[in-house]
Amino acid sequence: MRRRQVERMRRWPLLSWSIVLLAAGYFLLPLYATFQFSLGMQRGELSFAAYHWLFGSDRFLDSLSYSAVASLLAILAGTLLVVPTVYWVRLKLPQARGFVEFASLLPLIIPPIVVVFGYMRLYGDGSWLPLTTSDGRLDLLLVIGYVVLALPYMFRAVDTGMAAIDIVTLTEAAESLGASRWRIVVSVIFPNVRSAIVAGAFLTLSISLGEFVMASLLSRPAFGPYLVQMGQDYAYQPAALAILAFVITWACMALMQFFALRKPGQRVLPRLWAERTTKKEREVS
């Protein structure tokens, strides 16, 4: 009888429905409004004129590609920094794990504006390591800043990836076949954590592509400062940019999810049974 009571409560979840519908409305309304607004550039009709305008604009393409290159370089540098370190700590230096984990989480605690403020003062004019004195060096500093921003996500992704494989056995097997340390990292460990790295990379990309604070304070021609400028100068293009940004974020997250759930050596397009195992995995985790 009690069971039936519980069942009845579950069959008539009016309160749940209203909460969820309210939340869905709050989430979807701004997206709809933005999309509708972005179609209104030509008076009296709905058109994709704002999007055409953007893709015909050199500043849009230049700033977007600048940020894409900076993000990709940061992902590359972050991978080169994090993968060997995590591998080494897991294999030979478990006592350093606390330090590496703590250092990797620091960027979540120290706001980016403080980090870049420190750079400008410590590596400014007359420093022993001047990094703000030319455009090339400022570009380098921006990439370094993005590596710092990416550190927590890259670390977590790679660390989880390495926890899933038996690196000690893999290393011993490679060693007994005569592989050098570098060779082991490049051709044994790396392919096994590639999915984890790519997952971390897409998360990083979604964060750094539209990043504003660091790029603006270092006066870089990046996408973030361009967005703010557009918001001040135009009405309809910013709405179109917001829609594009949402689509890019969605794509990054979907790809991240896809690669994070992928097992080492799994094919890119999973078969149906593989889909089922990932679903089960999701429930377990």
Partner: peptide, 28 residues
Amino acid sequence: TFSGVASNFAGVPLAFAFIATLGRLGLV
């Protein structure tokens, strides 16, 4: 799924979306 995207959809584009919704000429 949506939350994964929305929690990362911050910064400048979010401001634009809310201007188009609740700004002086926003839809709402």
